[in-house]
Nucleic acid binder design. Structure first.
Lengths: 238, 238
DNA sequence: GAGGGTGCGTGATGACAATCACACGGATGA
DNA sequence: TCATCCGTGTGATTGTCATCACGCACCCTC
């Protein structure tokens, strides 16, 4: 038996985008109700930290609106951004399941709303509802694939231009246009982009100039126009 | 109810090392019996591929004896080794759970034995035994942490020497001696080490020379003596 | 013992990106 | 209106590592 639309946990979080693969969609009525009892909702300002790398796992965050960046840093202060999360994403799941410290810091990049599921009740809930445990496993394996993609990017792509092209392509596939180009609202600073592809701010600036010159992209204000996907793909596999 | 020693799936695989955190240890009697029905055992020679990156997931491999290396390659032929697996490890779990192609190639580095659990029966089994699904989730999150450690290594450690030191330390912690040093049997070629830390064979050769000169390590035949852990740790965080 | 394959050491060279440095423009706020 | 901060562009310099190249040692097998 499936919960009819309107009983889902996500409906208390009105703007939450519903995804096919979403962890908490299409649960049974009982499971959905139980989840609703467990959860608490809060609004976070820009710059708020949902959790910080190294902290003991308090619980799972279900991001409803807003964007968050997940990052990890070395002692010397070098930081890499490993994922940009949007509404619908589940944050902190790995840490909670394995009862290890959060492996990343989750910081809100713009104000947003999130549901919080405390660790203990969440784990108890999973024990009660085996069906959901399998869903969690699936979500974890998706997380794993994302991490693996990251490994491939960092380990196999040598030059910054290759990684930059890869990043642009990942943005471009999200917003395909009929003519092969695509538009993205650029909300990241060069510094943040550098932290994603593992290089320096200056190099990112130079990459933008270079790619503009090569007609690969165009900037109008904060709107990024990706012009030539196939050329980017050539850079990636070069 | 727990399976008494002797009913465990692993017992058909005599030399299989039993680990506390192992996926299939301490299952209920029923679950253990069911697993035993599902599994089939085979022996693999050195160089055998359990599965190859990009293949549709056929099932899960439970490595009993021998070692395997997990690797991924780019189209241009650059390869990185992401994990060295030993007896007790579960291979291919992520691909099977998420029904995506294997994300790595698993190649036997020395002859060994493995249990194979075909995808369909394994997933069916998980649906029947929710307890095990949660264990699988835990295993997946462990895999995830390993992957994340890899990301940190590749993304945060800039110089090859730092990554090399990190690798040596990871070996050294497995075989601690009373005086702070440790001995490891070096079974990898320089080429393979290069593929682990993401550099070239030549650089690895030079790193060995350099570290020998600095009294950080010593080589007697194929026995690697790691002499100065603290110095290595300084290089890592430098 | 000759020959081929594989793994290892090491020199020379060049490219490329990190680093440092500074200038500019647009916000924001006193 | 001016000061300040932040994000950005871009030059000059330097160190580091990948690359190419070659020689050597070892272990097979014929």
């Amino acid at each position: 038996m499936r919960a009819p639309y309107g009983l889902n946990i996500l409906d208390n979080c009105l703007t939450c985008p519903v995804r096919e693969e979403h962890l908490f969609c299409n649960l049974s009525v009982h499971a959905g109700q139980r989840l609703n009892e467990i959860k608490s909702t809060a609004v976070y300002p820009k710059g708020a930290m949902l959790f910080i790398e190294g902290q003991q796992p308090r619980g799972v965050f279900l991001l409803c609106t807003g964007k968050a960046k997940l990052s990890t840093s070395s002692r010397e202060g070098k930081t890499i951004i490993t994922k940009l999360s949007e509404g619908g994403d589940v944050l902190g799941l790995n840490a909670v399941i394995s009862n290890r410290p959060y492996e990343v810091t989750a910081e809100m990049m713009e104000p947003g709303q999130a549901n919080f599921l405390p660790r203990d009740s969440f784990l108890q809930f999973l024990k009660e509802y085996g069906e959901v445990a399998l869903r969690v496993a699936e979500q974890l394996s998706r997380n794993y694939y994302t991490a693996y993609e990251e490994i491939r990017t960092l380990g196999l792509a040598t030059s910054p231009s290759e990684k930059f092209a890869k990043l642009l392509l990942s943005w471009s596939t999200k917003t395909p246009q009929n003519d092969g180009s695509s538009q993205v609202k650029l909300t990241l600073t060069h510094e943040e982009i550098a932290e994603i592809i593992g290089t320096t701010r200056e190099t990112v600036s130079r990459l933008f100039s270079e790619f503009k010159k090569k007609q690969l992209l165009q900037l109008k204000g904060s709107t990024l126009l990706i012009r030539n996907r196939t050329a980017l793909e050539k850079i990636v596999q070069s």
